[in-house]
Design a protein around this nucleic acid. Structure first.
Lengths: 205, 205, 205, 205
DNA sequence: TATGAATGAGAGTTCATTCAT
DNA sequence: TATGAATGAACTCTCATTCAT
C-alpha cells in the first residue's frame, strides 16, 4: 500500500517535469513511466488519461502557488510593502519551481482559457472573493493618493510579467546583450531589487 | 510559376499559425497542408522536414521583428524616448503578429538555446554590433545621470517582459480580477501608456 | 507469456522469408506483420526498427550456419575428407534454408562490409581463432604435399562459390542449356558429388 | 537532338550503377535523375517506368555479355581451351562491369524467372541455338573421352559459380580468413589461373 | 525535350490507450 | 497493484508517377 502511494505521487512529480520540458503535445507517457520507474499502464490506472494527468498537475500547481500570493497580498499593509512582497514571493517560488512556471507559461500561450478556468475554480472555494479583496485594496490605496495607477488590471499587468519573465527571459536577454551571467543567486537578488525599485518609484505617488 | 510561389509562401503563413497554436510537438503537418490547400508532400518538397519548416519560420519572424526594435532603439535620442518607443513598437508588433509572439514564447520556455542562437546568428550579419550599441547607449545615459539602473541586463529585463506579457497575460489577469475587458484597442493604448509611465517614473532620474 | 514468445519468434521467422524474397529495400514491414499475424507496431515493440530486425536476422542466420561449417572443417582429418564434407554441409544447409542463403547473397552483393563485420564479430567470441585453425590446416596439408593450391584464399574461393551458387544458379543454367531438371533431390545429390569429385581431382596431389 | 541522345544514354549508365548498388527496391528514381543531371520526369519520358528501365538495362547487359561468352565457347576447339577461355572471359568482363554482375546477382536471388526469360529471349534471335551448340560440344568431348563430367548442367555449374563469385565473394573470404588482399590485379590473374587449373585437373581425363 | 510543381498511395514509425494475467 | 503484450489510429516522411507549361 505504501509503494502504491509513492508510485502515484512519483508519477505526478515526474510528469510535471515532463510537461514543463516538452509541453503537453511533446510530452511522452512512456518517458514519464520510465522516469517514475513504473509500468506505463499504471499511469492510466491512476490518472485515466494523459489529459487528465495534465489537468491535475496544473491544478495542483496553482493550488500551491495561489495561497502564497494571497498571503503576500494580505500581509501587505501599504503599497510599498505590496511592491516589495509580490515580486519576492513570485520570483522565489518560480526559481524553486521552474517546472510549474514553465507549465503555466505553456498554458498561457496555448490555451489561456484552460488556466483561467482553473483559477476561477480555485477562487470559488475561498470564502472571501480574492478578486474583490485585491480590487478593494487597490481602490483604497488610489483614493488615499498612495499610488498613481488606478486601474487594477494595468497595475497587476505592470507586476506579474516582470516576475514570470525574469527567469524565462534571462537567456534571451543574455543573447541580446552578449553577456553571460555567472552567479545566478546574486542575479535573482538583484532582479527582485530592481523590480521592487521600479515599481515603487514608478507607481507610488 | 506564380502558383508555386504562392504555395511555398502559403505554407509558411499557415504553418506559423499552426505552430503558434499548438507548439512544435502539437502541430500537425497534415493540418498545415489542408489549410494551405496544398498536398502534404509539398511541405516536404519545399521544406524537407517539419523541424526545418519550424526553424525557418522562427528565423523569418525574428528577421522581421529585430530590425524594428533596432530602429526604435536607434531613433531614441534620450532615455525618455527610449522608454516610450520600445513598448510601443513591441506591443504594436505583437498585437498584429500574435502567432510570432506565441512561437517566441514557446521557444523561450522549451529551449531558449534555440532562439538565442538564431538571435546571435542574425546579429553577426549586422555590421555595427547591436549589443554593443545598446550597452554603450545605456552606459552613457547612466554616466550622464539620466537613468537609475546601471546594469543593462536588468534594465532590459524591466522592459521586455512588460511588453510580451501584456498580451499573453491579459486573460489570466482578467481571471484573477474577475473583470472582462471589452474594448481591446483602448486596452492596448492604455497598456502602452501605463508601461511607458512606469518606466519613465521608475527609471529616469 | 507463451503467446508473446511465439509472436516475437514468429516475426523473426516470417521476416527472414520476406527479406530473402524482396531484399531489404523491397521488404515490407506491413507484410511481415500480416503474415506473422501480429500488429505492425509489435515489430517495433520487439525490434525497434526494420534495420535492426534485419541485422538480428543476419546475425542469427550466421550464428546457425558458421558452427556447422566449423564442425565440418574440424572433423576433416584429410584434405580428401575436407573436399567431401564442406560441399555436403554447405549445400544441404542451403537447400533447407534457402531464405538464409538468399539474405547472405543479397548482403554480399549490396554491402559486403556488413556481413563480413558480423562474421568477424562471431569469430571473436570463439576461443580458438577459426581463421588461424583453417589456415594452419591448409598450410600443413600443402607442406605434406597433399594439395596443389597453397594459397588459402584461392583454395576457399575454389570451394564456396560452387556451394552457394549451385542452388541459386540452377534456373539460369537451365535456361542457358534449355533443359528442365525435374527431380530436385537427385539433382542435389549429383551436385554434391560432382563438386566433390572436381575438388578432389583438381586440388589433391 | 544531340543533347537528348546523351541524356537518354546517361540515364542508362547511371541507372545501371544505381540498381547494382541498391537492388530494384532500394534504387531511387530521383537519385538516378540527379546523378544523370536530368529532370526526374525525363526518365519517365524516355523509359515510361522504373520497372521498364530496369528491364531494359538487364537486357542490354546480357546482350553485351552473352556474345562474348558465345565467342569464347566457339573458339574453344578443345576442353582444355574451354576451361581456360571461359573463366578468363567471364572474370575479366565482371571485373570491368561490376554493376552488371551485381544486377545479375540480384536478379538470380530475387526472381530467377525474370533473367532466364530474357536469356531465352536473346537466344531465340540467334540462328544456331546456343544451347544446342554447347550441349553438342560437351557431348562430343565426353564421347571422345576427353572430359569426366558427362552432364552439361553439372559441368556448367562447375564453372560459372567460380567465375561470378570470385569477385563477389572476395571480401567475405577475406573476413573468414582474416587476410587483406592488397594488389587486386595480381589477385584477379591468380584467380583465373587457379580456376583454370582446378577445372583442367578436375574435369579433363 | 525539358522543367518545377503536384499528387496519391503507402512506407516506417510513434503513441496513447487497453487487455489479459 | 502491477506487468508485458497488444492495438489502432495517426504521424512524419517517401516515392513513383503525372501535369502544366
Amino acid at each position: 500500500m505504501k509503494k502504491s502511494q509513492s508510485s502515484k505521487e512519483k508519477i505526478l512529480r515526474v510528469a510535471l517535469k515532463e510537461f514543463a520540458a516538452y509541453g503537453f503535445g511533446g510530452a511522452r507517457v512512456e518517458r514519464i513511466a520510465r522516469q517514475a520507474g513504473v509500468n506505463k499502464a499504471m499511469i492510466f490506472y491512476y490518472y485515466s488519461s494523459k489529459q487528465n494527468l495534465y489537468r491535475i498537475i496544473i491544478k495542483n500547481s496553482l493550488l500551491e502557488l495561489i495561497p502564497k500570493i494571497q498571503e503576500a497580498i494580505a500581509v501587505s499593509k501599504s503599497p510599498e510593502q505590496f511592491f516589495e512582497n509580490l515580486p519576492k514571493v513570485y520570483i522565489q517560488y518560480f526559481v524553486k519551481n521552474q517546472a510549474v512556471m514553465r507549465m503555466i507559461g505553456f498554458e498561457l500561450i496555448q490555451d489561456p482559457g484552460n488556466i483561467t478556468s482553473v483559477v476561477r475554480d480555485i477562487f470559488t472555494n475561498i470564502p472571501e472573493s480574492p478578486p474583490d479583496l485585491l480590487k478593494n485594496k487597490i481602490s483604497i490605496w488610489y483614493q488615499k493618493g498612495l499610488i498613481s495607477e488606478p486601474d487594477p488590471v494595468h497595475l497587476i499587468l505592470n507586476i506579474i510579467p516582470l516576475c514570470i519573465f525574469s527567469i524565462l527571459g534571462k537567456p534571451m536577454v543574455e543573447a541580446i546583450l552578449d553577456i553571460k551571467i555567472k552567479n545566478n543567486i546574486d542575479f535573482i537578488d538583484k532582479r527582485i531589487n530592481s523590480i521592487s525599485n521600479l515599481l515603487k518609484k514608478g507607481m507610488l505617488k
